[in-house]
Write a protein that binds this DNA or RNA. Structure first.
Length: 467
RNA sequence: GUCCCCUUCGUCUAGCCUGGCCCAGGACACCGCCCUUUCACGGCGGCGACACCGGUUCAAAUCCGGUAGGGGACGCCA
């Protein structure tokens, strides 16, 4: 076990989205790669917006992806007294002070500054107040250094430097006495001995302020690694209008966790030309230094390709369990019909998602009641009737039970009657599945069973004959 | 507006640190061809990028400067 300690710290104001999932994944990967510790911390200092449902949704997403944490989940709301103590410590040391400016007043100043093209930072009007009564509404501000610069060596972005004059005295405790985010992260990361902070790009601007806090409190400053954003197809920050962003939504759309993980790890990170990574390979090869510096666009097409890959290479028994919810959602029971595992084997090579697989599996359990008319129209009625009759006859008098034998049977039918395979296979496919997009004839027949096959062909024959 | 960051095929990226092997490699998508009883899988091939302008150098995707574009932050949100 190395000294490395990382954490994933989502705020429970929504579900676990793909961006957060990737951040969590990078943290998890680094911890597993270095034999470190991965901590889950829920940042719920905003009591107003944090919800239990969001916490549950995040935990559900983490578990589905298999990103197991070693410590936690810790809730910041459980540590308010701790934060308060540190706030007091800063006030006593003169490194923080009470500010009596009202929120509206501050808003007005900020808007005015923006409108006039000035930087909208706090003007420091309460900074040197002599009288600091405790019985009037106030927030606590951190007295930030005003000269010099604060810089850090980001593991992903390199050295980043901020002039201190750009930073103002940030609020560390609200009027209601609760601590704010920027203060809590510092206290938590310090007291939890976090050595490496991996988080979204949108936090770079907070980093210098936090570093100043670490220094004021006498804490060692951790290393930082800011991962770039994930964008939508229009290169704007990924949001719901780009489609699904929740990892649970991806589960429901029929994606495998290993596929999502594989897709996410390649979004921003690479290992030469490698594309497919098992969990073990990811852990072994992951290196935070190989994470790119620029934002990347979420591309569902590639996710689909990966998902198809994992579906193809998963064992059908495991797939059966994962597929069931999708079948149930279609009111489909697999009790009266072919073995689900056998069905899945015929569908693995042609499904990009479990949803697609469920759709394709439908016909095995529900005999077609309508047929693809356009496809049927390509054959003469007489040919159709002759083919159906010949196939039923051949099948009924044979004991063939494997795909190769069934295929051989169809070849016999063709050669005996002088038909081409297309003239026989396609009509039978339509008879069995209702349409033209289906697994190979031999596969369907074997999976469905000869009896059911003959029954369906008979039904199709009656349908054609009755037209 | 101010500050911070980013910029290689449509997309994800390799290469950049340690200039020449790069008239830039891989993958997804797309387009052909092959395989084939459909749909797929698979195989083969094709299309397609170093944002721009200067500089340094015998030589620049790689180093330096600038421009443009994009993103992020500027909250008593996280």
């Amino acid at each position: 076990m190395s000294e490395l300690r990382v954490r994933f710290a989502p705020s429970p104001t929504g579900y676990l989205h793909v961006g957060g999932a990737r951040t969590a994944l990078f943290n998890w990967l680094l911890a597993r790669n270095k034999g470190g510790t991965f901590i889950l911390r829920i940042e719920d200092t905003d009591v107003e917006r944090s919800t239990r449902e969001s916490v549950d949704a995040i935990l559900e997403g983490m578990k589905w992806l298999g990103l197991e944490w070693d410590e936690g989940p810790f809730y910041q709301s459980d540590y308010f007294p701790l934060y308060k103590g540190y706030v007091q410590k800063l006030v006593t040391a003169g490194k923080a002070y009470r500010c009596y400016c009202g929120a509206e007043e501050l808003d007005a100043k900020r808007n005015l500054a923006m409108a006039e093209g000035r930087k909208p930072k706090y003007d420091g009007c309460c900074r040197d107040l002599v009288a600091q009564p405790d019985d009037q509404p106030h927030v606590i501000r951190f007295r930030a250094p005003q000269n010099g610069a604060t810089s850090f060596d980001d593991l992903i972005k390199g050295t980043i430097t901020f002039p201190n004059e750009e930073l103002d005295d940030l609020i560390i405790q609200r009027t209601d006495g609760t601590p704010t985010y920027n203060f809590c992260v510092v206290i938590d990361d310090a007291t939890m001995s976090i050595t490496t902070v991996i988080r979204g790009d949108d936090h770079v601007n907070n980093t210098p302020r936090q570093i100043q806090l670490y220094e004021a409190l006498g804490f060692p400053v951790p290393q930082f690694a800011h991962v770039p954003m994930i964008l939508g197809a229009d290169k704007a920050r990924l949001s719901k209008r780009h489609g699904a962003t929740s990892v649970i939504a991806y589960r429901d759309m029929g994606y495998l966790p290993e596929a999502l993980l594989n897709y996410l790890v390649r979004l921003g990170w690479s290992n030469g030309d490698d594309e497919i990574f098992s969990l073990e390979e990811m852990i072994q090869k992951f290196d935070i230094n190989n994470v790119g510096r620029s934002a990347s666009v979420f591309n569902t097409e590639k996710l689909n390709w990966l998902n198809a890959h994992y579906i193809k290479n998963s064992d059908p028994e495991g797939l059966a369990d994962l597929l069931k919810p999708h079948l149930i959602a279609r009111d489909l029971s697999t009790h009266n019909g072919p073995d689900l595992v056998a069905v899945i084997k015929t569908l693995q090579e042609r499904s990009q998602t479990l949803e697609e697989m469920a759709d394709r599996a439908l016909f095995y359990y529900k005999a077609p009641t309508v047929y693809d008319e356009a496809a049927l129209a390509k054959f003469d009625k007489e040919l159709l009737l002759a083919v159906f009759a010949a196939v039923m006859e051949k099948l009924s008098s044979s004991s063939a039970s494997d795909v190769a034998a069934i295929d051989a049977l169809f070849k016999e039918v063709c050669s005996e009657a002088g038909w081409k395979m297309g003239q026989v296979g396609q009509p039978v496919r339509i008879a069995l599945s209702g349409g033209t997009q289906a697994p190979g004839i031999g596969e369907i027949v074997v999976t469905l069973g000869v009896a059911e096959t003959v029954r369906r062909i008979g039904a199709a024959r009656d349908f054609v004959a009755g037209r």
